[in-house]
Amino acid sequence: MSSPPAERQSRTSLSFPTDSSAVTRSATIWHPDGSVVLQARQTQYRVHWSVLSLHSSFFHGMLGLPQPPEQPSVDGCPIIELSDSDSDVENLLRALYDPLFFVQRALPLSVIASHLRLGKKYDFRGVLETNVERLTHENPTTLAGYDALKTGNSYSPTRIVNYHGLLYDTITLAGETNLLTVLPCAYYRALVGSLPVRPYNCTSCPGSGLCLVRHFRWHTARRRHGRDPLSNHQRACNLGRTALLRAQWDSGNTFGWTEDQSEEIGCTDPVACRHKKYAFFRRHVVRGSLAPFCSVSYVDSLNLCAVCTQAVKAKMIAGRQRMWDLLPTFFDLPPWSELRDEL
Results as ranks from 00 to 15, higher is better:
residue 195 L to R: 09
residue 164 H to I: 03
residue 192 V to R: 02
residue 149 L to I: 09
residue 138 E to H: 01
residue 199 P to V: 11
residue 109 L to V: 06
residue 83 S to T: 15
residue 115 H to C: 07
residue 187 Y to G: 02
residue 102 F to G: 01
residue 112 I to K: 04
residue 151 T to I: 14
residue 142 T to Q: 10
residue 110 S to T: 15
residue 101 F to I: 08
residue 145 G to T: 10
residue 114 S to Y: 00
residue 163 Y to K: 05
residue 104 Q to P: 05
residue 99 P to S: 01
residue 145 G to N: 10
residue 152 G to F: 05
residue 132 V to I: 15
residue 199 P to R: 12
residue 92 L to Q: 02
residue 170 T to D: 03
residue 83 S to E: 14
residue 164 H to C: 08
residue 180 L to Q: 13
residue 198 R to V: 08
residue 95 A to S: 11
residue 161 V to T: 13
residue 149 L to N: 04
residue 121 K to N: 07
residue 138 E to F: 01
residue 157 P to W: 00
residue 107 L to A: 02
residue 104 Q to T: 12
residue 125 R to P: 10
residue 104 Q to G: 08
residue 151 T to W: 07
residue 192 V to D: 01
residue 194 S to K: 10
residue 197 V to L: 13
residue 90 E to Q: 04
residue 197 V to D: 11
residue 127 V to E: 10
residue 197 V to C: 09
residue 96 L to A: 12
residue 158 T to W: 06
residue 189 R to N: 08
residue 184 P to N: 07
residue 178 N to T: 12
residue 170 T to P: 00
residue 150 K to R: 15
residue 162 N to G: 09
residue 158 T to C: 12
residue 89 V to C: 01
residue 192 V to F: 00
residue 151 T to N: 10
residue 106 A to K: 04
residue 113 A to G: 11
residue 115 H to L: 03
residue 179 L to T: 03
residue 173 L to S: 04
residue 147 D to Y: 03
residue 181 T to P: 08
residue 125 R to L: 14
residue 130 T to W: 09
residue 171 I to C: 14
residue 134 R to M: 05
residue 86 D to F: 04
residue 160 I to H: 00
residue 170 T to H: 03
residue 199 P to N: 11
residue 181 T to R: 15
residue 89 V to D: 00
residue 89 V to Q: 01
residue 182 V to H: 01
residue 196 P to G: 13
residue 107 L to G: 03
residue 98 D to P: 06
residue 166 L to E: 06
residue 89 V to E: 00
residue 121 K to S: 07
residue 196 P to T: 14
residue 183 L to I: 10
residue 149 L to R: 09
residue 170 T to Q: 07
residue 88 D to Y: 02
residue 97 Y to S: 08
residue 102 F to Y: 10
residue 106 A to S: 14
residue 137 H to G: 14
residue 153 N to H: 07
residue 152 G to K: 08
residue 167 L to D: 09
residue 120 K to M: 13
residue 96 L to R: 04
residue 198 R to S: 13
residue 196 P to I: 12
residue 144 A to F: 12
residue 133 E to Q: 14
residue 114 S to E: 09
residue 107 L to E: 01
residue 198 R to C: 07
residue 161 V to Y: 01
residue 180 L to H: 14
residue 180 L to E: 15
residue 173 L to G: 02
residue 93 L to Q: 03
residue 196 P to N: 08
residue 103 V to E: 11
residue 132 V to W: 00
residue 84 D to W: 00
residue 91 N to T: 06
residue 189 R to S: 06
residue 141 T to D: 14
residue 176 E to I: 11
residue 82 L to V: 06
residue 90 E to K: 03
residue 190 A to S: 07
residue 84 D to Q: 05
residue 166 L to G: 10
residue 96 L to I: 11
residue 173 L to P: 01
residue 151 T to R: 14
residue 174 A to T: 04
residue 156 S to P: 07
residue 133 E to S: 12
residue 163 Y to E: 03
residue 173 L to Y: 01
residue 187 Y to W: 02
residue 102 F to I: 07
residue 193 G to N: 05
residue 132 V to R: 06
residue 98 D to F: 05
residue 86 D to I: 08
residue 193 G to Y: 01
residue 160 I to P: 00
residue 133 E to L: 13
residue 167 L to C: 02
residue 122 Y to M: 05
residue 97 Y to I: 07
residue 96 L to M: 09
residue 125 R to H: 15
residue 93 L to A: 10
residue 104 Q to C: 09
residue 199 P to Q: 10
residue 83 S to M: 15
residue 133 E to T: 15
residue 85 S to A: 12
residue 99 P to F: 04
residue 190 A to P: 02
residue 140 P to R: 09
residue 192 V to W: 03
residue 177 T to G: 06
residue 117 R to E: 10
residue 133 E to H: 11
